[in-house]
């Protein structure tokens, strides 16, 4: 164990797994409770367009993906609030067209030989110190905003209409939450990749939801599950020489399965199934 950790790349990977596991699980709590999973998928896949655009114009792919993801998040939010077309249709359109844009940008770039696979499925062992600083900076920002607006985000997640009646700026809070999701996606790209980010947003929180009826406990358990899955997945991938992003996600999925099967909620519901 200790000799693995003597490699600097492994140390960086471990720190990244812990940080990303925490941030994803905090935001994931809202994603699961407010049923934003599909929006999350839309936002995360749009990152591909941003990354590819960065390659095309020769700038830092992640740097370009940040405004690209934020813009897509706001666009999806705006369309779903305006209600001209249904939310899932809007996401379906944004989802596919931003991916297509990405493919187009890659195609336009002559002599294409970029490591796309790393962006799509993660490359945690290649995390650099500058990647870590970005993860730390954005992650701290996201968690700080959540801490400051904890009660407002709770109210809006539970009952948006009542929150509006109480005079909370629900529209602004909704867009803020989408923005936080976009930033969370960005910092997760290096770890599990664009295709698999959604899993870290949904699985730890969904597993935690099986175990508790308390919001704060759920968020705490979600963070615990996210971090443990990240670390365990990382070590398993190292020992067995497996793709690390996929191993982290599958570890989280296994934890979810266990929580789901042994959920005390489901057992109680069987007894008092009157609803």
């Amino acid at each position: 164990m200790s000799d693995i950790l003597s490699y600097p790349f492994m140390q960086r990977a471990l720190i990244a797994a812990v940080l990303v596991g925490m941030v994803c699980s905090v935001i994931g709590t809202y994603v699961v409770l407010k049923k934003l999973a599909f929006i999350g998928a839309g936002i995360s896949h749009s990152a591909f367009g941003g990354v590819a655009l960065g390659y095309l114009v020769g700038l830092d792919p992640i740097g370009i993906a940040i405004p690209f993801c934020l813009a897509t998040a706001m666009a999806i939010g705006w369309v779903s609030k305006k209600g001209r077309i249904s939310e899932d249709t809007a996401i379906g359109i944004a989802f596919a067209s931003t991916m297509a844009l990405g493919a187009l940008f890659i195609g336009l770039k002559e002599g294409y030989n970029v490591d796309l696979f790393g962006y799509l499925f993660g490359s945690i062992l290649a995390v650099s110190w500058s990647d870590l600083w970005l993860i730390l900076g954005l992650g701290l920002g996201v968690v700080t905003v959540v801490a400051l607006l904890f009660k407002e985000l709770l109210f809006v997640s539970f009952d948006e209409e009542m929150a509006a009646v109480s005079g909370l700026p629900v529209q602004a809070l909704y867009f803020l939450l989408l923005g936080l999701m976009a930033l969370t996606v960005i910092i997760s790209i290096k770890i599990v990749g664009i295709i698999l980010v959604e899993a870290l947003l949904v699985i730890p929180a969904a597993a935690a939801f099986q175990l508790t009826r308390s919001f704060r406990v759920m968020m705490g358990l979600s963070v615990l599950i996210g971090v443990v899955s990240g670390v365990v997945g990382l070590f398993l991938s190292y020992w067995w020489d497996l793709p690390s992003g996929a191993t982290i996600v599958l570890t989280a999925a296994a934890v979810f399965l266990v929580c789901f099967v042994f959920s005390p909620k489901r057992r109680r519901r069987l007894v008092t199934s009157k609803g």
Binding site: E152, L154, S166, S214
Partner: peptide, 21 residues
């Protein structure tokens, strides 16, 4: 099914008065 306690829900009634942050 939302994971909140009775106190949490009633306290939400105060949030509009308490103000942001």
């Amino acid at each position: 099914s939302f994971p909140v306690s009775v106190t949490d829900v009633v306290m939400m009634g105060r949030y509009g008065r308490i103000g942001l942050f």
